[in-house]
Design a protein around this nucleic acid. Structure first.
Length: 690
RNA sequence: GGUCCGGUAGCUCAGUUGGUUAGAGCAGGGAACUCAUAAUUCCUUGGUCGGGGGUUCGAGUCCCUCCCGGACUACCA
């Protein structure tokens, strides 16, 4: 009976790019979800951008655009980063969605009906220039106790006194520099204390929390009466207006976790699933993955809200620690504050997926990305041990395929099959470092087998052909087991293994039965080794242009002139896939007339599988109709108006849907991976490309 | 200051309910091999398990105490 699992990772804030620290969580969660799916469980991964709050409002103001515009752009970047790291969500939503507004209202009504909401007067500083109430962190001033100047609004970094920003001497708004006025507004609060006994019971006995977290909550919060939670913010605020309290908005932390549900709702609407099967069913487990910084919200308020509104409580809240790089906090000046995009510009996401997996446990300890360890671990384990198994045996059975019956391997396959249970248990418990250790131990047994069997000698003797096939059958099956066990971590490797051996990896249980009698495809490199210079290039790229950083950057510029370093280091697979054509002369090249053209019309061709019909303008009223095979990659609307490069003197060709009078130049293997070329800004329609 | 976690080979860590001479990977040293992405395999150096005390026939493992490192927290959430 498959389990039904709803899984979430914390919602990234729409105020900045994804970095390597964020990825600890999204990868940890993605691995767990992929594992569950591989086990055949009905598991869904939901996430969304967290879009509300003062910070978003201020940034949008500063950039002179609407909040909606800002969060749309950031969300697009987030989703692209996740996709490129192989993080697959079943739905990725936004807290600024109609679904979220609706569910917020529902939960709000429940809280009101159960009498948990009360009003209180709150005195707060007000910035008359910006026209907003100031959170403590937006006020600085002189400490009332020790007279230290320029202290934060909540406590003094000099003498340690805590105070209210109202008490500061000579307070200033950090936003405008204006002197804040003391104001007072009515806020709505949730009386959490009413749920005290429930939360006590749930945090201590439900098994949803790691023991150290349960203990922490008990010591820090549950020992006393729980404080009221200030849940409203007066206008102006970017968020949802509270329906029965006009001019006030729900605090961002109220609607953020509800975003998990809204994202689920969107998925349900799309797939025809029932929302209540996921959020109001005892058959469905709810798992949240979060960082230790937001423990409070997810272990007290959130279960409280769920309880009151009658939804399922979290089955487990999995809490992880932070990321350090080379033993220190990520630092912008040292270049260790690496954005997801910067990483992707230089390195294969598989490296990071594996490295994090090899470090993660179910503890809340911080994990360290030691760059040196990163390089050696990935190269030794993945390239040297795992991929090497396939690399050293696949080509010997390219012609014959695998043996018809699985040969005697001294029990290796059986042992590895039996290890599957223990490895699965480690994944289930989020103890990935243990899972990786167990898998590598299997790899350490597989390589000596090949060493002793010496396939490279067997192949020299015709009479040993059968034995050679058997040896490679064993090696490739042991390799395949590893690939299956690593599938949650390295989906790309699993895919490649499926292609090599002609059977896709879709189930954990495939590791129990060897593959026999099937063809073996040509072996292609599955993973490049990590090159230290690429890691260095990534760090260099991440250094912020502060005084120190700028000096270091210009230094590296100098060294570049002496010894050429290609910091991009593009892989050679595309060139390999399509080698250079025969040499041609300049005259040959000039036969092809490439022109800058503008797409003036673009439309779907209803019956075509791959084609779009384009009308290209070469200027001066000269038009060409072109059928381009880019349907899967481009929306027609988005192409209209765009400048492209076309082959203008191509012989017209009659196609099923009409005559095509040219070609639009594009690169890529096909399908969705097509990249139409455009000239740089300033090119004029009709110009020839030389 | 409080709470929690950790301190095992140069590095990263494993050591289940206390039980024989404390393990792995990497790094170091030596050798073999050449199929493989200078990959692999074999052999090998290396540890008073943070210090001290206790319980026990027996402690890395339990208790006490001290030292060191880290995280959280300090009446804000």
């Amino acid at each position: 009976m498959p389990r039904r699992l709803l899984v979430t990772a914390a919602l990234p804030y729409a105020n900045g790019p994804i970095h390597l620290g964020h990825l600890v969580e999204y990868l940890q969660t993605d691995i767990w979800v992929r594992f569950q799916k591989l086990m055949g469980n009905d598991c869904r991964y939901f996430c969304a951008d967290d879009t509300h709050g003062t910070a978003i409002m201020l940034r949008a103001r500063q950039e002179g655009r609407s909040e909606e515009d800002l969060i749309a752009q950031v969300q697009q970047e987030h989703e692209q980063d996740f996709a490129d790291f192989g993080i697959e969500f079943d739905n990725y939503g936004s807290t600024n969605s109609p679904e979220n507004r609706e569910i917020c209202a529902k939960i709000w009504t429940s809280l009101r009906d159960k009498g948990l909401v009360k009003e209180k007067q709150v005195s707060q500083l007000y910035d008359p220039e910006e026209g907003i109430f100031l959170a403590d962190r937006f006020v600085r001033g002189t400490c009332p106790k020790c007279d230290a100047p320029d202290q934060p609004g909540d406590n003094c970094s000099s003498c340690g006194t805590t105070y209210s920003p109202v008490d500061l001497i000579d307070p200033k708004s950090t936003l405008s520099g204006a002197t804040p006025e003391e104001g007072s507004a009515l806020h709505l609060f949730i009386e959490l204390e009413q749920l005290h006994s429930f939360l006590e019971e749930w945090t201590q006995k439900s098994g949803a929390l790691q023991p150290e977290i349960a203990n922490y909550l008990k010591g820090h919060f549950l020992g006393d009466a729980l404080r009221d939670w200030d849940i409203s913010r007066p206008s102006p605020y970017f968020g949802f207006e509270i329906p029965d309290y006009p001019g006030n908005y729900w605090y961002v932390w109220f609607d953020a976790p509800i975003g998990y549900m809204a994202s689920t709702q969107q998925w349900c609407d799309r797939t025809g699933e029932k929302f209540d099967d996921w959020w109001r069913s005892t058959d469905c487990e709810v798992h949240h993955f979060i960082g230790k910084d937001i423990t409070y919200f997810h272990t007290l308020f959130w279960p409280g809200m769920l309880k009151v509104a009658g939804y399922s409580l979290p089955t487990k809240v999995h809490i992880h620690g932070f990321l350090t790089v080379d033993g220190e906090k990520m630092s912008k000046s040292k270049g260790t504050f690496v954005r997801a995009r910067s990483y992707l510009d230089h390195l294969d996401p598989a490296y990071l997926r594996y490295f994090y997996a090899s470090k993660l446990s179910s503890k809340i300890d911080d994990i360290d990305l030691s760059l040196e360890e990163f390089i050696t671990k990935v190269n030794t384990d993945l390239v040297g041990k795992v991929v090497n198994l396939a690399s050293r045996s696949a080509k010997f059975v390219r012609k014959t395929g695998l043996s018809a019956e699985y040969p005697d391997d001294g029990g290796l396959f059986q042992q590895a099959a039996e290890a599957g249970e223990e490895i699965a248990a480690a994944y289930e418990a989020c103890d990935y470092s243990r899972a990786m250790r167990l898998i590598m131990a299997l790899a350490d047994r597989a390589n000596p087998y090949v060493e002793e069997a010496k396939p490279w000698e067997l192949r020299k003797d015709e009479a040993q052909a059968e034995r050679l096939q058997d040896v490679c059958t064993v090696a490739l099956n042991l390799f395949r087991q590893l690939a299956i066990y690593l599938t949650p971590v390295l989906p790309q490797l699993a895919k490649q293994t499926g292609q090599l051996l002609g059977e896709p990896i879709t189930r954990w249980s495939q590791a129990q039965t060897p593959l026999v009698g099937t063809p073996v495809n040509q072996f292609k490199h599955m993973l490049q080794r990590v090159e230290p210079k690429k890691v260095n290039a990534m760090i260099e790229d991440s250094k912020e242009e502060t005084g120190e950083g700028a000096a270091a950057a210009s230094e590296s510029q100098e060294s570049k002139s002496q010894e050429f370093v290609d910091k991009w280091n593009d892989p050679g697979d595309s060139l390999e896939a399509e080698p250079l054509a025969d040499e041609c002369t300049f005259d040959d090249f000039m036969k092809v007339d490439l022109r800058v053209a503008r797409i003036v019309e673009a439309e779907q061709v209803p019956d075509a599988r791959k084609l779009l019909r384009l009308k290209l303008s070469l200027g001066g009223g000269v038009y060409k109709q072109v059928f381009a095979g880019i349907k899967a990659a481009y929306d027609p609307e988005k192409l209209v108006g765009r400048q492209v490069v076309c082959v203008a003197n191509l012989a017209p060709r009659k196609m099923k849907f009409g005559v095509s009078e040219g070609m639009v130049v594009a690169s890529g293997p096909g399908g969705e991976e097509i990249f139409v070329l455009s000239p740089d800004e300033g090119a004029k329609v009709g110009q020839r490309v030389h």
